[in-house]
């Protein structure tokens, strides 16, 4: 019998556990030339703000050892354009769409949630409190457990859509932040956003990125992400969407075993647009080999030994 790879995040049902990581897939349009977007369990859109943002100036992307540093700066056309021009395209896809929202103030997030709430195409909201690349951006919220509680609680009052809080790894205790999100009524947490880093051009004796610092992603960060998911899994009951450097089937399985109920692919899309197909095939094959009939049996399994 074919193993069941359906997954569930709150009330959101996914055909498979693979999501796009926000900011690495636009709103799906570009990759629809290369791949059938229905291979995804859901699409997570590029971070959306109330007003349009032109992003950071200077060099925005630098390759590092097994990874990249980026400082795009939440470039996006703003919510009005998104609703008018992007939602109709997403609606036609008939796959779950998770809209990633970001703001400077709590009321920006509230306004975004309020305006997106009426649209049935928007299956869930991912709340970006972890972008490392904008000065007054979400990171100021995401590193403060009290503010994460507050923002989640306020959004909970505005929308019944599943609320996913995207957490930053750039904190001493990610578990404490996840606990606050759960307490305030989040349906899930997603982690990790990028790790803050920088690179210096030694010949020019200057930082490489126009924004000086940026977010590190790619295979280099995978062990860090995996550890955080493993850790947070023991501290909360709500589902975890795991991400950070997944490039192949083994990585995806490891994230599920660590406790993720869904997984997002990000940087790998830039290198291999066929990655979701390859990873899905690996997952099915893996489940057959190990006699798992559903994803549920795998989630968090790596914690077993400690419990014994």
């Amino acid at each position: 019998m074919e193993p069941k790879i359906q997954s569930r995040i709150g009330s959101l049902e996914l055909n498979n556990p693979l999501l796009t990581a926000s900011g690495t897939y636009g709103n799906g349009r570009e990759y629809s030339n290369y791949i059938d977007l229905h291979c995804w369990g859901g699409l997570v859109t590029k971070g959306l703000t109330l007003e349009s943002r032109s992003g950071n100036s200077g060099i925005r992307i630098v390759e590092t050892a097994a990874g990249i540093l980026n400082s795009i700066g939440l470039q996006n056309p703003g919510i009005e354009y998104f609703i008018k021009e992007e939602l109709p395209f997403l609606e036609k896809l008939k796959i779950p769409v998770i809209v990633n929202i970001a703001g400077r103030r709590i009321r920006d997030y509230e306004e975004l949630a309020r305006r997106l709430d009426p649209f049935s195409t928007v299956s869930a909201l991912e709340v970006n409190v972890s972008c490392p690349n904008v000065r007054e951006g979400g990171l100021a919220f995401g590193t403060n457990p009290g503010l994460v509680y507050e923002i989640t609680a306020r959004l909970r009052e505005i929308t019944t859509k599943p609320l996913i809080i995207k957490l930053t790894p750039n904190v001493a205790d990610v578990g404490e932040i996840a606990i606050q999100a759960e307490k305030a009524g989040a349906d899930a947490v997603s982690l990790i956003n990028t790790l803050m880093g920088m690179e210096i051009d030694v010949e020019r004796q200057k930082p490489m990125l126009g924004n000086i610092v940026g977010g590190l992603s790619g295979p280099a960060v995978k062990p860090v992400a995996l550890r955080m998911i493993y850790q947070v899994y023991r501290q909360i009951k709500i589902p975890i969407i795991g991400m950070g450097g997944i490039t192949k089937g083994e990585d995806a399985v490891a994230f599920l075993l660590a406790g993720a109920r869904a997984i997002a692919l990000g940087t790998v899309n830039f290198v291999n647009p066929k990655a979701p197909l390859e990873i899905k095939n690996y997952l099915l094959d893996y489940m057959r080999r190990h006699n798992f009939s559903s994803l549920e049996e795998m989630v968090g399994l790596a914690h077993r030994e400690r419990e014994d």
Binding site: G26, N33, Y34, I59, R60, V62, I72, Q75, F270
Partner: peptide
């Protein structure tokens, strides 16, 4: 420009 994805999603190769 320094490029990432090459297909328009990463927004790394911005030109004003």
């Amino acid at each position: 420009r320094r490029m990432g994805c090459g297909v328009g999603t990463c927004l790394g190769c911005a030109v004003k």
